[in-house]
């Protein structure tokens, strides 16, 4: 296996495309030049800092507890991200933290318990990171769509409540719609994987010189774990948000907008 290192010179060379993007923004008068420059600098700075921290966590003599703490930190940051994107649902941070933590625990149990990956710091952090990275996007979508679906269909839900349906029954069609919306993109991505774009894990392994067949097997395992964790977090958070909009006596209680 060969190693791949582009060094800071390579990074500087890739800046050419950032300059192109900024130039396009300037030419089309999009006003995004500063934002593009800030995004590029921020991504570089963040990843350098994260890389430095990861070097400590993933060092051969580093205690494994550091990796688990890192995963816990990712769960907290992920939950905070979700709660910040859908602000007017009470208790969303705790709900999202529980869902992300539960999903990543189940997925890692499968990944390491069944021997798909060796249990070591070098695998714990990246695998958990991939799971959480995908789950956070889907979970934000699930929470947001659930809130929007229920708010937009308030009249239908109240009609159902007024004929004696339970709150859970009254919101079910709208919750189902929001969950389909949240999980759908990941299912589509799983269906077309490799046909249009090579996914990140596989690309990374190929760039690192791993045999393509081995890279494919790792990627398939990762895709399955991602789909599972996306489904778990989307359903748990979607249902949690929906039930926070209902009272114990089957009334709809929408947050103030």
């Amino acid at each position: 296996m060969s190693t791949s290192s582009i060094g800071f010179t390579g990074v500087a060379a890739s800046l050419v495309l950032i300059v192109v993007a900024a130039a396009l923004s300037w030419r089309e008068r999009l006003g995004l030049e500063r934002t593009i420059a800030w995004a590029a600098c921020r991504a570089f700075g963040q990843l350098v800092v994260i890389g430095g921290a990861l070097a400590l966590v993933l060092a051969d003599d580093a205690p494994p507890i550091l990796s688990w703490l890192w995963v816990a930190g990712m769960v907290v940051v992920g939950a905070a991200t979700i709660a910040s994107r859908v602000r007017n649902v009470p208790g969303l941070f705790a709900l999202a933290a529980g869902a992300l933590g539960g999903a990543v625990a189940v997925s890692l149990l499968v990944a390491f318990g069944l021997g798909i990956f060796p249990l070591e710091p070098r695998t714990i952090v990246p695998v958990a990171g991939m799971l959480l990275g995908n789950a956070i996007g889907a979970t934000v979508l699930s929470a947001r769509r659930t809130l929007i679906e229920i708010t937009e269909h308030r009249d239908q839900i109240e009609v159902r409540l007024a004929i004696g349906q339970t709150g859970r029954d009254a919101i079910r069609p709208h919750l189902q719609e929001s969950l389909r919306t949240a999980i759908g993109p990941q299912i589509e991505q799983t269906k077309i994987v490799g046909l249009i774009a090579l996914p990140g894990t596989m690309t990374g392994l190929l760039l690192a010189g791993v045999d393509p067949l081995d890279a494919v097997l790792v990627q398939v395992a990762v895709m399955f774990l991602i789909l599972g964790s996306v489904a778990i977090t989307s359903v748990v958070v979607g249902r949690g948000v929906a039930h926070r909009l209902l009272t114990a006596d089957h009334r709809l209680q929408l947050p103030a907008t």
């Binding site: 007024a162 004929i163 339970t166 089957h250």
Partner: peptide, 13 residues
């Protein structure tokens, strides 16, 4: 029971 109440006291919006 609110569910039984709403089946007895119907509403048209």
């Amino acid at each position: 029971d609110p569910l039984a109440l709403r089946r007895e006291v119907a509403m048209v919006f």
